[in-house]
Design a protein around this nucleic acid. Structure first.
Lengths: 124, 124
DNA sequence: GCGATAGTCGTACGTTCGTGCGAATATACG
DNA sequence: CGTATATTCGCACGAACGTACGACTATCGC
């Protein structure tokens, strides 16, 4: 653990306001986890696909996104663990779709906006 | 690299539609990078703070968020590298604020929405 | 100039995460 | 029952990331 070395705030009022405006630890963690989940390219592309295609099996998703079945399976497991997608079994095939009550428009809207934001604003 | 083992798509039409609906590699990468940047709790809390406080120095941000100066400095460097914040020097003190043209309302809106989403939908 | 303070830099460390491989499970078909 | 297919699991590896620590730079006040 690191010490904060300066004894006096430069802007005590500002620190107070900042402290009050800050997210709670729980909020930051929840939101951070969700964003981390969304930050993976494979998972991201899958969600966008599942918004328009409704239902696809692991192998077909792998084909559509040109990734390995392992990648597909792993990504879907993560999304499922977070409750964002759900499964249906049909013989040997397991179909994935967005979970009931998934906020499609909302997420879609937000991500498209963020996509726009990321347009000019990047390095590397 | 992994082979996709099944020779025939289960739902060829679906795969086609999925492929067409998918984000481009570039889009997925840009959006993923942005989301990864936002997925860190420290950076996240900083942005929320800077939306309401306008300008704060490294040490005061550390105080307000109860983190080390190293953490504060590191997080701000990342955000600066991404062009999300900018600096102003005042003597020994370096003030950080959201970058000019930062889409405050948009980002604020999106993140608040995602925060809401993350409310019910989590494990662990 | 000297000492103190704000912030950054270099580096090493520990952790987390996505990947790939081979084996295992589950189901269908003959 | 035996083989083939779809998916998952266990595991190990490597890469990326955030943190802490000490050294370093820059600026202020005396």
């Amino acid at each position: 653990m690191d010490k904060v070395s300066h004894n006096h705030p430069v802007d005590a009022a500002g620190v107070g306001r900042a402290h009050r405006a800050a997210l709670t630890a729980a909020e930051a963690e929840r939101l951070g986890s969700l964003l981390a989940l969304l930050s993976d390219q494979v998972r991201l592309r899958m969600l966008f696909v599942l918004v328009s295609v409704e239902e696809l099996c692991v192998g077909d998703l792998a084909l559509a996104l040109d990734i390995s079945m392992d990648q597909s399976s792993y990504a879907l497991r993560q999304l499922r663990g977070a409750g964002l997608v759900q499964t249906r079994r049909g013989g040997r095939v397991i179909y994935y779709r967005l979970a009931d009550g998934f906020p499609q428009q909302l997420l879609e809207h937000c991500l498209r906006e963020l996509l726009t934001i990321s347009d000019g604003r990047e390095r590397s």
